[in-house]
Amino acid sequence: MHDVDDKFKSRVSFTLLAIAALALAVFLIWIGRVIFLLLFASAIGAILLTTVSNWLHSRFKIKQGLALALFLCVTFAVTALVVWSQGPNIVQQFADLETDLPVAAHSLLTQMRSQQWGQWILRQSPGSEQISSGFSFALTRIGGIVVSSATILAGLVIVFSLSIYFSAEPEMYYNGIRRAVPEEYRGKMDACAASVAQILRWWVLAKLISMTLVGALISIGLWIVGVPLAGTLGIIAAVMTFIPNVGPLISVIPAALLALAISPTKGLLALLVFAIVFTIEGYVVTPLLERNIVRLPPALTLTMQLLLAAVAGPVGVALAAPVAAAILGILSVLLPKAPDVPVPTSKRVA
């Protein structure tokens, strides 16, 4: 009887300790949720750097450490050259954007008030004066948000630094995590890690190609149309392409405002440029690239963006797509592949 009581007490104690440990882990994850997302972004960067160093290692028969150092040196040299030659011009364009956006917003509101259709839209809105004034104030902050990037720059520096550390010695960091997993589950963990790395590798490469193409085409198209600061707007469009669903919509706003401030015709032409470029990116480039990567269902990506936006804010929105890709990679290993079942449709009753 005494032994039974001791076993019961030990089980209760173990259960309470497990619950307390789980609650503490959830609490720490919640407190450091942004940090964990930055670590996840660093892991993505490490996967990209490792892919490049592995390619250089196999192509030129040099050590992986030397290949990584060579790639980083070339990257730093090219970045320094671009900053030295084009940095002042880029900074000046972003400063001009910060000044021109509020002017464009007020010009657009003035044009709306001078037109019957604009007056009708403002009259239909409850508290139109407050809405228009708030709209103007919000737009005056867009340039500041774009230019005041100290926090974003600090986060990028942290992510890039950690990516270098992770890619220099990936086995050491991975084996450290692996030791915390029970031995019987390590094989499954290795399979999940390999699947996630493969999916994220192709996802990042495809996304970089899409971003480069979108930025170049938007810059060229806006320059042809005659929209000012076309290069800066192209950079914004390229960066925002990293964020599915939300990013392209955000990138349209400053270009449309600057173009509409000149004339409605230029505004329509600017919108047409964005529509054509993102149509090419969505229906031509991405399907070709997705032959080698997992296709992320748009509904899943949007759901993950909403969830992570509530949890971690803008950082969560930016990393929602790779998080969804990683989850799909894990599920592809843990869940057996089931045969596709056709979706039942309602039959027409004669």
Rank of each mutant, 00 (worst) to 15 (best):
M1K: 14
H2Y: 13
D5S: 13
F8I: 08
K9G: 05
R11T: 04
L17R: 03
L22R: 10
L24K: 10
L28I: 13
L28T: 14
F36G: 13
G45K: 06
G45V: 11
I47M: 09
L49V: 07
T50A: 02
R59K: 15
K63E: 13
G65Y: 06
A67E: 06
L72H: 03
T75A: 03
A77Y: 00
T79H: 02
A80C: 05
L81E: 00
V83N: 00
W84D: 00
Q86W: 00
G87Q: 00
I90Q: 00
V91N: 00
D96G: 02
L97E: 01
T99R: 01
P102H: 12
L108I: 12
L108C: 07
Q116T: 13
R123I: 07
S125H: 07
S128P: 02
F135A: 11
L139H: 05
L139V: 12
R141Y: 13
G143Q: 10
V147I: 03
S149R: 06
V159E: 10
S163T: 05
S167L: 02
E169I: 04
E171D: 07
E171V: 07
Y174E: 05
N175C: 02
A180H: 03
P182L: 09
R186V: 11
G187D: 08
M189P: 03
A191G: 15
S195I: 11
V196G: 06
A197N: 04
I199Q: 11
L200Q: 07
L200E: 04
R201T: 12
W202R: 14
A206H: 14
M211V: 03
L213K: 01
G215D: 05
A216P: 13
A216D: 06
L217E: 09
G221D: 12
G221S: 08
L222T: 01
W223T: 00
I224P: 02
V225M: 02
A230T: 08
G231W: 01
G231S: 04
T232G: 14
G234C: 07
M240C: 14
I243R: 06
S251Q: 06
V252N: 01
I253S: 02
A259V: 03
S263M: 15
K266D: 10
L268N: 10
F274Q: 03
F278D: 03
T279H: 04
T279V: 00
E281S: 09
V285L: 11
N292K: 15
L296Y: 08
P297N: 15
L302Y: 10
M304P: 02
Q305H: 06
L307K: 11
A312G: 15
G316E: 11
A318I: 14
L319V: 08
L319K: 11
A321G: 04
A321R: 01
A324N: 05
G329D: 13
I330C: 06
I330D: 03
S332H: 14
P336M: 14
P342W: 03
P342G: 01
A350S: 13
